[in-house]
């Protein structure tokens, strides 16, 4: 039975690398005595994947695991799994995946991020306006074949200051090609980025961007609305 699990990565757990997180989940699942499905081949490995790697030191309220179990999974099993996971990795919700859905990782298109702001937000608001008004935002990026220049502007789907919450929220296209890294944007805003966190991951669903669990919800669609919010439910 294949399921997607939404979980948070908070407190000290933000220091786990992607590989550390993988090991931690695999071992938690074995401690919980839940049977995994293994890949066939010379060196079988369990079918566990995460939607998208998170930089070390960054917390998240919306991480996703895509796991295939060798038996049916219900609330009791999920409780056992939660008990086996270290504190700081709480399961938020989970949903069975129907046949035919491609690997979660391959569907990821964008992510929502936020970071707390210092007291003086006015200056940052001005800078945000500047960035949004720019035709292009070239930055230098260290690639495998040396340094290259990439344009961040097309990847900047949304950038806004949440005044009452005193946070900067960002919606950025993901992926090495055409995507933007949250720290690159923060650098353009001259913000240190302490307390950066990921708030949501968005998948491609037709012409829309949708949160993973919404993709699995039949009859409801979530669409991205650049004017209003990151995404909204559409009946």
């Amino acid at each position: 039975m294949r399921i997607w699990i939404k979980f948070a990565k908070q407190d000290l757990m933000c220091y786990l690398s992607h590989l550390d997180l993988m090991r931690t989940w695999q071992r938690a699942i074995r401690r919980a005595a839940l049977p995994l499905v293994y890949s066939q081949g010379f060196n079988p490995h369990p079918k566990i994947a995460f939607a998208s790697a998170l930089p070390v030191g960054v917390a998240s309220t919306a991480e996703y695991a895509d796991i295939s179990f060798a038996k049916g999974i219900g609330a009791a099993e999920m409780e056992k799994l939660q008990d086996a996971l270290p504190a700081g990795l709480p399961v938020l919700c989970w949903r069975p995946v129907p046949e035919g859905i491609p690997p979660l990782m391959s569907l990821v298109r964008a992510a929502a991020w936020s970071v707390p702001l210092p007291d003086d937000v006015q200056q940052i608001e001005a800078r945000v306006e500047e960035l949004l008004g720019a035709a292009s935002l070239p930055v230098r990026r260290q690639g495998k074949k040396g340094e290259k220049t990439v344009d961040l502007r097309p990847a900047l789907l949304r950038l806004a200051v949440d005044r009452p919450g005193r946070r900067l929220t960002m919606l950025l296209l993901a992926g090495a090609d055409g995507g933007a890294k949250p720290r690159e944007v923060l650098e353009l805003l001259a913000l240190p980025g302490d307390g950066l966190q990921r708030d949501e991951i968005l998948l491609a669903a037709g012409a829309y961007l949708q949160a993973p669990m919404a993709v699995l919800l039949k009859g409801k669609e979530v669409s991205f609305n650049a004017e209003k919010d990151y995404y909204q439910l559409r009946q």
Binding site: L12, Y15, L16, S17, D20, R27, A28, R31, V56, G57, P86, A87
Partner: peptide, 10 residues
């Protein structure tokens, strides 16, 4: 490598 200094492993 902060993960080696967390001290709260399982």
């Amino acid at each position: 490598k902060p993960a080696r200094y967390l001290g709260n492993e399982i």
